[in-house]
Simulated scan of single mutants.
Amino acid sequence: MTWFASPADASTRLHDVGYLADPATSTTSFLAGALEKPLLVEGPAGVGKTELAKAVARATGADLVRLQCYEGLDEARALYEWNYKKQLLRIQASHTQSGGDETWDQTHDDIFTEEFLLTRPLLTAIRREEPTVLLIDEVDKTDIEVEGLLLEVLSDFQVTIPELGTVSAVRRPFVVLTSNASRELSEAVKRRCLYLHLDYPDAEREREIVASQVPGLDDQVTRQLVATIARLRELELKKAPSIAESVDWARTLVALEIGDLDDTAIADTLGVILKHRSDHDRAVKELKLVRR
Rank of each mutant, 00 (worst) to 15 (best):
H108A: 12
R292C: 02
E36K: 11
H197Q: 07
A181P: 01
K86H: 14
V56T: 14
E163N: 03
D140Q: 03
V176S: 04
D260Q: 13
F174R: 02
L225P: 00
D140E: 04
P215S: 06
V17D: 06
I144T: 15
Y84S: 06
G148V: 13
E102H: 08
D263G: 15
R13T: 10
T50P: 08
S278V: 15
P215W: 13
T166I: 12
A227P: 00
D268Q: 05
E204T: 15
E42F: 15
A267L: 02
E115M: 05
T60F: 15
Q68G: 02
E81F: 15
L253F: 04
A267G: 03
T25W: 03
K239S: 12
F112K: 00
V133K: 04
Q87E: 09
I273W: 06
V247T: 03
R192M: 06
Q213G: 05
D202N: 09
R77A: 14
A125Q: 07
V290D: 11
F116W: 08
A125E: 05
L261R: 04
G72W: 05
P162F: 01
L31G: 09
G165N: 01
L151K: 00
E236T: 13
G46K: 12
E36S: 14
E71I: 08
A21H: 04
A5K: 13
S6G: 06
E204H: 15
W104R: 05
L232G: 04
T103K: 06
V226G: 03
L217Q: 07
P121M: 02
W82C: 10
I243E: 06
K37C: 10
A227N: 06
D74F: 05
W82V: 15
R58F: 11
A230N: 06
L151F: 00
L261G: 05
G100S: 08
Y200N: 04
L154T: 07
L134R: 08
Y80K: 00
D156R: 07
L117I: 03
Q97P: 00
D9V: 09
E36R: 12
G259Q: 11
G33T: 08
A283K: 05
L117Y: 01
Y80H: 07
D74M: 00
V284P: 00
A8S: 14
A250K: 04
L237V: 07
L64M: 10
L40C: 10
W3F: 11
R231N: 05
D218Y: 04
V153H: 03
L198E: 11
A181W: 03
P173G: 13
A240E: 08
V170D: 04
R77V: 14
Q87H: 01
S94V: 15
G72D: 03
R183V: 15
A240H: 12
K190P: 02
L253P: 02
T107L: 07
P241G: 05
S278L: 14
L270C: 09
P131Q: 11
K37I: 13
V47M: 04
A227I: 10
A62T: 06
V153W: 01
W104S: 08
L217Y: 13
F4I: 11
